[in-house]
Design a protein around this nucleic acid. Structure first.
Lengths: 199, 199, 199, 199
DNA sequence: TATGAATGAGGCTTCATTCAT
DNA sequence: AATGAATGAAGCCTCATTCAT
């Protein structure tokens, strides 16, 4: 009926705003993107933004949440039960690579983000870490990778990746960091954690 | 005489402003700290800031430069010719630890900083990496640590440290990240790069 | 419909701001009038000014342009094909007189105006000079007025008028310079350029 | 004695400041010249300015007064008892030409000047007008120039000159307006006021 | 007397948010 | 529901003037 039709329309618009916002955030950075930029990119009026999101802060949070569930879904698709560690790391990078711009903006600007946004990011990371650590545990048990505390295992990996993403201007000014360095980073990390000495 | 007295006074004030700014930046973050905040923390008028620094941007750059030379000086003091790698990493963390708050703010907000500020940070990193890599090279030659490309060696370490610093709220909400996790991070990294398998 | 209603409203506001700005400029002078003065005179918020004009400078230019087209339109209305010179000069003064305050401010402060504003004024003057010189040429051809270079003809006239306007405090502190001295100035200038000797 | 020595020194400094200020005003315009500019051009401290002049406004007035007496003195030197009108006008232009930059700045920015400064300018003009009118009167009596009210006689001339000076960017962007157009302007004005018809 | 560091009022501009239509 | 004009609280910076030395 008419009402539900409207509801649907409204939901569509909201989705579209989230999508557009994500693109703008990816392109110009989170703090540099003004609500008016998003409105004009989405070809809606400035006021419309605030019809769907009470504040800019809440809009940002919803964009991050959308990104989170998208990433999480993608991880599930890419990883199946008997993946080895290398495949999981590659899947992680692949997942990130699909929204590299936004993800980079997100981790680069975490510090200046409102708390809600920061928490949303933490949720995402912990979901990812869960996936990776599950496989890592098997590796350690099997003796193929060095034994080490799980948190350090994950944080070393994620720290390495974030460092490259955050310094894209240094490492890959032209194209995607993941497509340019992903393979090398995975190989390096596998080498580091491998139970065998040296290369 | 009078003239040098005056100049000294002015230099003192400028130093003090840099010092105060560094504290404020450390406490509230770089972008969240207003020039007026710094002025009132330093108990000078707002205009005084602009007597010593032409723009807020230039003030920020000078604070970073001061931090850089301080860090660099500290590294030199802490490291002597026959340091082993573990000692160098510890020295690095000790150096950072002395201005942990500011350093954390700096790396956490790089993305939203003006170019000059970003470049200043890059200079600092490259000075540090030089120190560390020198020792690492000896270790690889001697076969005590795994052979690997220098850039990855450094970037994995710095990425790990930055990840912990950036997520201080997660890892050490109350006190310093370095004093709480520094030793463990060094041990972990030494284990990772050690030529011997497992622990 | 709604859209055009909105646009009309916005256009109205902009017009009103230009109008108000012109009054304020006329009353207090161009450089002495702050954007905040204009806002409060127009009973809008300070920010509204910048919704309609990107900078104070651009606002000034638009006010000058509005004045220019108003003046030009008025000249056309007042002058018809077979005007004699005296009528044209009178029309010129009449046109100016209608915005005497603003015009006076404009020519009195040209030197401290941004370039765009200066250029806008030059355009106006050249349109006026065209009108006047056309008729002057006929007079010289017919031998009723002295032969002289066109530029000097116009510049002497305009210089005289501007001198009186700029020194209003001297010549007509209470009321309009044009209404008090216009006739006399026209008579004098006609006498000066008349081909016949003396009065 | 010591005291008068000091006094003399102080007077010298003051003279020098006035001289330097005049140059700066000529070069950059009156309102665009800041007290700090003058101080640094004179190689004295900023505070020194306010030791000799209570306010910027008063400094400006004294500069104008100095210019006035200099101009007046120069007029006396250039004009002797039996000058004809043409010679007097030429002398006027010559006098102006010697400080053309400052004089131009002065008349171009009169409107934005404080009252004291405006009054000082008026005094100067009236001294000059006296000189010129004296000779003009003889010409009118002798029937060599058209009869006309004295004020209009002077104001037309001065308006013409000011118009050219004020619009130097239009008429003589490179060099001095007086040296480029002075002769032509004098000739034109002589022609205008000549009792004989036409050229 | 001279210095020049310090002051602080005030200007322009930005942008998230509100509200009448 | 959508619009977009209007709001107003900050933020950065300038510069004449003061005052301790």
């Amino acid at each position: 009926m008419a009402v539900s039709q409207r509801q649907k329309q409204k939901t569509e618009t909201k989705k579209f705003l989230i999508e557009t916002a994500m693109e703008q955030f990816a392109k110009k950075g989170l703090s540099a993107t003004r609500t008016a930029d998003i409105a004009s990119a989405a070809k809606v009026s400035h006021g419309t933004i605030f019809l769907h999101f009470p504040t800019r802060e809440r809009l940002l949070e919803e964009v991050i949440e959308e990104f989170g569930s998208r990433t999480s879904r993608r991880m599930h698709e890419l990883i199946n039960g008997d993946c080895n560690l290398e495949e999981v790391l590659a899947a992680h990078l692949k997942g990130i690579g699909e929204c590299e711009g936004f993800y980079t903006a997100l981790i680069s600007e975490t510090a200046v983000l409102p708390e809600g946004a920061r928490n949303a990011l933490i949720m995402i990371q912990s979901a990812i870490s869960h996936h990776i650590l599950q496989v890592a545990e098997r590796g350690m048990d099997a003796g193929t990778i060095k034994t080490m505390p799980f948190d350090l295992f994950f944080n070393t990996w994620i720290g390495l990746i974030h460092y490259y993403l955050s310094n894209r201007a240094l490492f890959s000014p032209e194209d995607s960091v993941i497509s340019r360095h992903g393979q090398r980073l995975t190989d390096h990390y596998m080498n580091l954690i491998s139970a065998k000495g040296g290369i």
